[in-house]
Design a protein around this nucleic acid. Structure first.
Lengths: 148, 148
DNA sequence: CCAAACTTGTTTCATTTGTAACCATTGAAA
DNA sequence: TTTCAATGGTTACAAATGAAACAAGTTTGG
């Protein structure tokens, strides 16, 4: 291997990105085909389904989305009547977001599909490999938190 | 853990995406600050630097980019006079792309920075962790190729 | 108190992206 | 041949994104 050449195919940032892109594209079919959701919308649905109630800021933190993405996803889900906003009593800048019945129903429908997707993906791996994936991802996450 | 709840923070597609996004964002500073390149432009530069000469289609395959991204990236690098197109003798639809002196210079400047970035990132991990990352990424790549 | 600084969330604007239509050319079939 | 499908690459259009400005509200420090 020449010292002044970069092998893109082996370069970790590229490989990670391609991996995530492929997986994400594949998975997005599920919520796109099913309900025409975008990724931010799916994450918002998922976050609220999991936690019950959150503010937009909390949502952004939990699901690693920029606040403009959150804002737009929330607006769209509200338009669909999948979530409602409740003004905070003490701080009138803040709104508490929660899923409606319809939103919850969509969430409940999605959860098994998401889990099945993940299971199927990991199911293609051997035990060792699966462990490596889990460990490797966790290690990188830790390394990135620490740095920043 | 409730059976009908999805923990986004542990969901592999989400974790992968966030990981790749963070790493890619961090790395992109290097080529963005340095030369104002976009990711497709960087990949094009990198691909041609590595292989010497490629067609647009080959570039797309090597660097996992949609052909419109390739087309636009190539156009921009050409505008900068970082690459040239040479029509194929036998097939007039095809153009062979290659870096100019200036393009090669930029590439040569970027390579050590890219390598240093990767080294630094992996350097934050222990030996075991590093192995898990490499193994895990490879395993997922294999699993995804096979499927599709 | 009150002004300045900060926070929450939205909007505007420019850029990036993806899909689909497209043009030109080639290859294959009739 | 002539026609028709396939391929390489570009372009047009709509949607998604990010940065920065913004409005409204809250906190802090004098």
């Amino acid at each position: 291997m020449e010292p002044d050449i970069l092998e893109l195919e082996s370069f970790l940032p590229y490989r990670l990105y391609r991996l995530a892109d492929t997986v994400s594209r594949e998975f997005s079919k599920i919520y796109k085909d099913r309900h025409g959701l975008t990724r931010p919308e799916w994450r918002t649905l998922s976050g609220l389904g999991e936690r019950g109630t959150m503010t937009a800021t909390e949502l952004g933190e939990q699901s690693a989305m920029h606040k403009t993405k959150v804002s737009r996803a929330v607006a769209e889900l509200e338009r669909r009547r999948w979530l409602t906003r409740t003004p905070d009593e003490n701080d009138r800048r803040v709104e508490h977001l929660a899923l409606t019945k319809a939103g919850l129903a969509a969430y409940r429908e999605m959860v098994p599909l998401a889990k099945a997707f993940e299971r199927e993906l990991l199911g293609r791996l051997g035990v060792e490999e699966r462990m490596a994936v889990v460990e490797g991802v966790a290690a990188l996450e830790k390394a990135l938190e620490e740095k920043n």
